[in-house]
Design a protein around this nucleic acid. Structure first.
Lengths: 235, 235
DNA sequence: ATATTTTACTTGTAAATACAAGTTGCGATG
DNA sequence: CATCGCAACTTGTATTTACAAGTAAAATAT
């Protein structure tokens, strides 16, 4: 546990408290000075931890008032999904692996620009279908460069997020990314996979995710049935 | 110009330099220590400015290396739009006001939850249609609470962003927000406004934007033709 | 009682300083 | 000549201190 910065530790503690419901929406966190004396650190360090929470959208700060707790959102991977009828309990989420990770060469018509090293390394490819309450919600395909990720094709991905595995086994963390969003009429294959009605549109996303390894990106293409659930974003 | 914090001034300078192309993509900014001596401020202040640029996605930082400049994106209001064929020059963007700001009561079926004060104040309503190269790209309706924004119904909005007017005349700045995204088949009215083919889907967004005035939100509903242009996001 | 001022809190900005940790290139060493 | 290691950079983390500015409630004056 050492090697983890103090502000990071405090961030994780506060994050846990908020997500576990120790505070109601609109409650104030302890003041910065209180957090200092509680955890035996100084104010700039505390402020760094709070800054992270602001980035997550878990608090907002008001000068003269304090740090206000906001309602947390449910996430699926790094996708935030909001139900129109009811919230999605993570217990009802299921993942089917349609294609286990395999080594391939990059597709000819790959929609993203690749760096030299990524191109030479070849790629790992996988396909997943995610269900909520037994109904398919979205289908995604993922490409990542075959760079220093040994044995990834052997790992079991059932009920584990790709991002969790990258983080825990390879110390690869998602730091951000870019995405392109469209509404499209999907082709036959997607219609069958997501069990869509004819003429029913889907959200189509292309994303390039940045990681803590420079030049190592995760590329995802996602088809999302937004009839009953919407994609939710906070910024 | 006093009253503006130093880190904010430096942020604006660096932002300008990056957007005006003083640096190519991948270039390094001057080091933090160099920026300190150039502008006569200390490192924490410089780091605050750089932090803002990171948030904007204009730079990324690598420990031991420096602050790397990234390619800037074009924005329309607070929407980022990427062209599939060619980039959108802002000179080709046109705005038509379908409904000038008027005072109304909040709609019955308003999709957002309102605070007490917002509810009592009533709302300002406006509709716009935005064109790129004479082709309608998206239609948006906006609701904002009628709280301390005198004479807004009198102002001209031609070629001026709603957000620009809120900022310059009322010191209201957008600090963030939440959005819900879906792919839908639009109704007749939207089909006509955006000149869509029958059966052609659109991106539908509902957003609630937070401002520096507590309890003052801007609510937008957007129908976006994503056939030729996609919505682009950085996170 | 009500309105105003004060006070005690909150977060925001800023300086000066120190050391840790990652990156890169130069130079000594084999 | 090739390689290793060191030195000189870079950003990351952390402390200490000070004052400014916004908020809200208590104290005071009207």
């Amino acid at each position: 546990m050492n090697g983890v910065p103090q502000y990071r530790k405090l961030y994780k503690i506060l994050r846990k408290h908020i997500l576990e419901g120790m505070y109601a929406e609109g409650d104030l966190l302890p003041s910065e000075n209180e957090l200092c004396s509680i955890h035996g650190i100084t104010r700039p360090t505390v402020r760094q931890a709070l800054e992270e929470l602001v980035k997550d959208g878990l608090i907002l700060k008001r000068q003269g008032k304090g740090s206000i707790v906001r309602k947390p959102l449910r996430n699926i991977g790094i996708l935030s999904v909001a139900g129109t009828a009811s919230a999605i309990g993570h217990s009802y989420l299921k993942t089917a692996i349609l294609q286990k990770p395999v080594v391939k060469s990059w597709p000819e018509d790959f929609p993203f620009e690749l760096s030299e090293t990524e191109n030479e390394a070849g790629c790992i490819y996988m396909e997943r279908l995610r269900y909520v309450n037994e109904i398919p919600l979205f289908y995604d395909i993922n490409h990542l460069p075959n760079l220093n990720i040994p044995r990834i094709t052997r790992r079991s991905f059932e009920n584990k997020s790709l991002f969790d595995i990258l983080r825990s086994h390879y110390q690869i963390e998602i730091k951000g990314g870019e995405q392109k969003l469209k509404a499209i009429l999907p082709d036959e294959r997607i219609i069958n996979l997501l069990k869509l009605q004819p003429g029913q549109p889907v959200l189509y996303l292309e994303r390039k995710l940045r990681t803590n390894r420079e030049g190592f990106h995760v590329y995802s293409t996602i088809w999302f049935n937004s009839e009953k659930h919407a994609i939710f974003g906070s910024f």
